[in-house]
């Protein structure tokens, strides 16, 4: 590969990295907005999963495109894998604990199969 071609690829990678970083940061920002604005516990939980999954993937993709070293990419992939495995577990435990300790008021839910099923 010639020097000029290398430069073009570096530029492309940098631009892609910038786009990834911006989108990831936007998702993290909207998570902050969501966690503040949504009215009750379960709705706020949705705000958390969003930056944790796609936002993190985008931000780390941005890092990988900028750093371009295999050992760093491997470690970033590991971060994403841990996050994908752990974040649903954490979300599920928080949601279940909230539901069982009555943090969710019935008027916050349009449909509630779980309470209906327990009641009847």
């Amino acid at each position: 590969m010639t020097g000029v071609g290398q430069d073009v690829w570096n530029l492309v990678a940098d631009v892609l990295a910038g786009a990834c970083l911006l989108l990831g940061a936007f998702l993290a920002f909207s998570a902050g907005v969501g966690v503040l604005r949504f009215g009750h516990l379960l709705a706020r939980m949705h705000a958390v999963t969003k930056p944790q999954v796609l936002g993190l993937i985008l931000l780390l993709l941005g890092v990988a495109l900028r750093v371009r070293s295999w050992s760093a990419v491997a470690m970033l992939a590991l971060v994403v894998a841990f996050q994908l495995l752990t974040s649903p577990v954490a979300a599920h435990m928080v949601g279940r604990a909230g539901f069982r300790t009555g943090k969710v008021r019935p008027e916050d839910l349009e449909v509630d199969d779980l309470t209906d099923e327990r009641a009847g």
Partner: peptide, 15 residues
């Protein structure tokens, strides 16, 4: 359940 939880907009409360 895990995949459904990972997608934003739905969280598994009970399984």
């Amino acid at each position: 359940a895990e995949l459904a939880s990972l997608v934003p907009g739905s969280v598994v409360v009970e399984l």
